[in-house]
Design a protein around this nucleic acid. Sequence first.
DNA 1: TATTTGTGTAACCTAAAAGTTACATATTAT
DNA 2: ATAATATGTAACTTTTAGGTTACACAAATA
Lengths: 111, 111
Amino acid sequence: MKTNTLDAFQVIADPSRRQMLMMLSKDSMTINAIADNFDMSRPAVSKHIKLLYTAGFITIKDIGRERHCILKQDGFQELQDFINFFDKFWTARLGKLQSILNSKQAKHGRD
Amino acid sequence: MKTNTLDAFQVIADPSRRQMLMMLSKDSMTINAIADNFDMSRPAVSKHIKLLYTAGFITIKDIGRERHCILKQDGFQELQDFINFFDKFWTARLGKLQSILNSKQAKHGRD
DNA sequence: TATTTGTGTAACCTAAAAGTTACATATTAT
DNA sequence: ATAATATGTAACTTTTAGGTTACACAAATA
């Protein structure tokens, strides 16, 4: 059994895919509309879209023969959690530094 | 002139490197100490560390023959910015949805 | 109905990533 | 001085990612 649920970090590692996400934040777009903005073949774009879809970054709404790509929050969650973890880390570190400074200040008296 | 400043997104795309960052959030570690926690050769770890260093995720303090790896915030900035952008996006979208709901409520009167 | 349009997929190629082993080198310990 | 330790790097291999072209097919249009 192969658990191959493509990981969000890998998905956004590709600059083209990041750009697609940025574009979709302006408005939903069809696959072809997206492809027009890239210097690569349409099938290549199609693949990227599939990845974005599989990893939960977008939803796709079929309208006739067109497929409209719409941003979806799910895929971002894992990234948000990761960044959040380190945000807290840096904040905590800053807090510790300041309390050290404060205790020094207390020891030596201020001014 | 080759501008090859390895991109932060690509650096964290690798699960091992992410794990190294997590480990370093507990405490700074030498290269060998890090390598002990992974099922790969020491030179492989060495390479990962070099990437993390180059991309600004860690600082390295040489103490004798040991190299101590210490987490550094710089590398995270680009990721934070990216996530931040989409955080704002989702928040804004939620706001829009709510104002639509509100205006509907106003139209029909409340209750 | 014939054609064009919007798309997915398979087969293939190439380049880059990630790993390995072998070796070099500086520091520390004996 | 010798041996052991902590590391970097080069050369090489394998796997995977990202791209291409060629083809299939359903929906829209003429």
